[in-house]
Design a protein around this nucleic acid. Structure first.
Lengths: 337, 337
DNA sequence: TTGTACGCGTTATCAA
DNA sequence: TTGATAACGCGTACAA
């Protein structure tokens, strides 16, 4: 194993000098610096994270986690993921601060970003908004480590994105529905809002895959604002207006409300329902046989992985290996929840 | 953060004494020992893994991995998992040795177990055999850390099992087939061997779930010895003998061979096929539309997790949190592979 | 029975 | 521009 000491010895300098070179702290003559870099590279020097961690304990690195999780059970598992990861890093002096909000108001999130100013890393489910984008870029510029979680926003300098591929979620949902419906179905689509890029992307993926699923046809698309009651009313309405609907594709929240609308139909006339995320109320609907399957985007792993990246960066000084950590959608039936 | 030093100070003793008590090395008076234990517990003392690792670097812990992986592509991902985990632990001085075999001869595996005698931990996919069981128990008795991977064997003193729930795999497969077949199907079952407990368990799970899937009926069950050609011949035979078969449930290997038999039928008469594990040849068959879906048992994570457990035990001295780490089966279509 | 001292590899501070 | 030295927390050999 190659240590700084070995590199130092081989170069005939002290460890301090090696440290300064390898961390670009300057104050080293160009020639010795060049030599040290060469030797370190040749020997394949890799800093020892354990030693790094030990030494970093005085630093007490802090991670802020910003989520629009209030009243949204999807995030429960994400939070469990970041929390458990953070707990296992406590011994390294790492602390975390969870900042939550209700709904999707950019101003609220900006407020939370301000509160996170003292953190060394920020994990955030960002609203796609120019102010948010600017705020994130600012944080990156002042040296913070920023990871977007569950949602990404374009043209933003975050270091990394951890989440699902929304379009692929739609593609997979379409393929699944095709199989479940035996090849042909009249589909009612319920989404939260066309303003939310993730919802749009899922619908686009669904439509894209529909080109190969010639037996499927979209009868109607409605928005439920991620609200259970709106979801109930509008789904009910849609089912009345389009009695030929044989399948329901629920793109986001409001699953329970939509299912209640389905349950008002006689069992023989109920459409097949597929949805995203196995939150408790959706699981209930699976048990009742209303929801046939869900697409699962590994919320726990999203949370855990993003905290892991912060840890690697802050404690071990390792940059993320990839720019995007995409979780595949999994198909869950009641049996393999 | 609570360190040994703090505990020592609070007890008015030296760190050495605390160490002896916490590691049960004896040579400490009962009263001071009791006091130290009490204080450590009250303060919630947790040893710092980084420091432990640093200090343990001289130890060079060694992990042996024993798999019947030769000629079986399923294990490629398992190996990638153990390998990548082991690589990330190299800096802690941990080394791994991969010992592989072809087929399921207990004598071969015993041979590998002998070769692993110098390792501190053994990760093994065990054959369900009395000699193997005895050998594992022996290793445990002499202080080795043993994890069974992918398969478990009963009445064995291994510390931990990492793998899937075979019965649940069968249950899930049945539910999936029911949905895909629109509620009714005449099912042909192809398994490797009834002698292999995992295969039996999957079939049992399938049959159990069939009690609720009244439209499904098993037309025939054949064994293919996990061999592609046998699989081809016998599946072809089964399809000829039972022309009413509308679905095929492939429990283990030999997927490609069975699919070739299916492809000899005209497209209109081909049964729906579901199988386990997304190995390359199976993915090919999914692309051709022969295999509709596979049940995926997270091979990479199985490998990674088991090495992680060895690391935690050998380097950090942490016993596994659970006795069994069960990976849920995931349903994969071509779209979310 | 108990305490002391060194080393693991890195970082940071202070002296030269 | 450099080198020496003290932490970080733990394990352990050795001294008392």
């Amino acid at each position: 194993m190659v240590t700084m000491k070995k590199v130092a010895e081989l170069c005939g300098v002290s460890r301090g000098t090696v440290d300064r070179v390898l961390h670009g702290r300057g104050r080293v003559s160009d020639e010795t610096a060049a030599n040290i870099r060469r030797v370190a590279k040749e020997l394949g020097y890799e800093p020892n994270p354990a030693a790094k961690a030990l030494s970093a304990r005085k630093k007490q690195p802090k991670v802020a986690v910003i989520l629009p999780s209030e009243g949204n059970p999807f995030f429960d598992e994400v939070i469990r993921g970041v929390q458990e990861a953070a707990d296992s890093y406590k011994i390294y002096g790492l602390t975390m601060e969870l900042l939550t909000m209700k709904g999707y108001d950019p101003q609220d999130e900006l407020q939370l970003l301000k509160q996170a100013a003292d953190a060394d890393a920020i994990l955030i489910d960002p609203i796609d908004d120019d102010d948010i984008r600017a705020a994130i870029n600012n944080l990156v510029d002042v040296g913070k480590f920023v990871v977007t979680v569950n949602n990404d926003i374009p043209n933003c300098e975050r270091h990394c994105y951890v989440g699902s591929d929304y379009e692929n979620g739609g593609v997979t949902a379409c393929a699944l529905l095709e199989a479940f419906a035996g090849g042909s179905a009249e589909v009612g689509v319920v989404l939260g809002s066309k303003k939310i890029s993730g919802h749009r992307a899922r619908l686009e993926g669904f439509q894209k895959r529909m080109e190969k699923a010639t037996g499927l046809h979209i009868a109607a698309v409605i928005e439920n604002e991620d609200d259970e009651f709106t979801s109930f009313e509008r789904t009910k309405d849609m089912l009345r207006t389009h009695p030929d609907i044989t399948a329901l594709f629920l793109i986001a929240g409001g699953v329970y409300g939509a299912c209640r609308a389905v349950m008002e139909l006689s069992p023989a006339h109920r459409p097949i329902v597929i949805a995203f995320d196995s939150v408790p109320s959706t699981v209930e609907m699976m048990k009742k046989g209303i929801v046939k399957a869900v697409l699962y985007q590994h919320p726990y792993r999203q949370g855990h992985r993003s905290m892991e990246l912060a840890f690697e960066r802050l404690v071990n000084g390792r940059a993320p290996y990839k720019q995007e950590y995409i979780m595949k959608h999994e198909i869950k039936l009641l049996e393999n929840l």
